[in-house]
Simulated assay, not measured.
Amino acid sequence: MTRADLVISPQVYTHGEVGPDATAYAVGKLEAALHHAPGPVLRTSLTLDAAAPGDRVDAHVDVNGVGLHVHAVGESLQEATDLMQDRLRSRLRRIRRRPQQGPDTPKQ
């Protein structure tokens, strides 16, 4: 398993009434998921939307030139954040399993 040692802090966008605790929780979950990235994380952004029908969390990530977008809707921002983290980890595992579809890995 490869671990990305450097995780870039995401740009965070909010819509509606999103408290600082919800923002910090979402950033922590995103950064935890990115520690499983199979390459360097070049850019991240996170959108928390409490104004949408259901609370929605979107994450956009660039892993060594491969763009990933995941989103989740839940009854609370915490639930949506947990779902987003699960989906992002799944996408990162898929890139690791199928390197021809993801970032180039250095040959040793």
Rank of each mutant, 00 (worst) to 15 (best):
R98K: 09
M84T: 14
S45Q: 11
D49R: 03
V18E: 07
T14C: 01
R43N: 11
R97F: 14
G28N: 14
V70W: 03
R91C: 08
G67H: 10
H69C: 01
H60Y: 07
L6A: 10
L30E: 02
L77S: 01
S76D: 11
R87Y: 09
T14V: 06
D21G: 08
H35L: 13
A33Y: 10
T47D: 00
H71C: 10
Y13M: 05
N64E: 11
V18P: 03
L34H: 09
T105D: 09
L48V: 04
D49Q: 05
L83T: 09
A24E: 12
P53G: 00
E79H: 15
L48C: 04
G67Q: 04
A51N: 07
T81M: 05
P10C: 00
L42T: 12
V70R: 03
L46N: 08
H60G: 04
R91A: 14
L77P: 01
L48G: 03
H15G: 05
R98P: 06
T47N: 00
E75N: 14
A22F: 03
K29T: 06
L6I: 14
V63H: 01
V73D: 12
E31M: 08
R96V: 11
G28L: 03
M1Q: 11
A33M: 06
P99F: 13
D21T: 04
A33E: 10
G19V: 02
E17C: 00
M84I: 12
A24T: 13
G67E: 11
Q11W: 07
R3C: 04
R87K: 11
V63K: 01
D104F: 09
V61K: 00
T105A: 13
D86N: 15
V41T: 12
E17D: 14
H35R: 14
V73P: 11
H36R: 08
T105E: 13
G19F: 06
Y25A: 00
V12A: 08
T81H: 10
V66D: 04
Y25E: 02
Q11D: 05
A59S: 03
D58P: 05
L88G: 00
P10L: 00
R87I: 09
N64Y: 05
P106W: 09
G65R: 03
S76G: 08
V41F: 14
D86E: 14
V27S: 08
Q85P: 01
E75A: 15
Q85F: 07
R97G: 07
A52K: 03
D58Q: 09
L6C: 07
G39E: 05
A59N: 08
V18W: 01
G65S: 04
A50D: 12
T2I: 06
V18H: 06
E75T: 13
I8K: 09
T105C: 08
A4W: 01
A32T: 14
A26V: 03
D21A: 12
R96A: 15
D104H: 12
V61P: 13
E17Q: 07
T47G: 00
R87N: 00
H35M: 15
V27C: 07
Q11H: 04
G28T: 09
G67A: 13
H71T: 11
Q108N: 15
T44F: 04
P106N: 13
G67I: 10
Y25Q: 02
R96Y: 12
R93M: 15
S45Y: 14
L92F: 11
P10V: 02
D49F: 05
A24P: 12
A51H: 01
N64K: 03
V61N: 01
D49L: 01
Q100Y: 15
T81P: 05
T44K: 01
S76T: 13
G54T: 02
H69T: 00
V18C: 04
G19S: 13
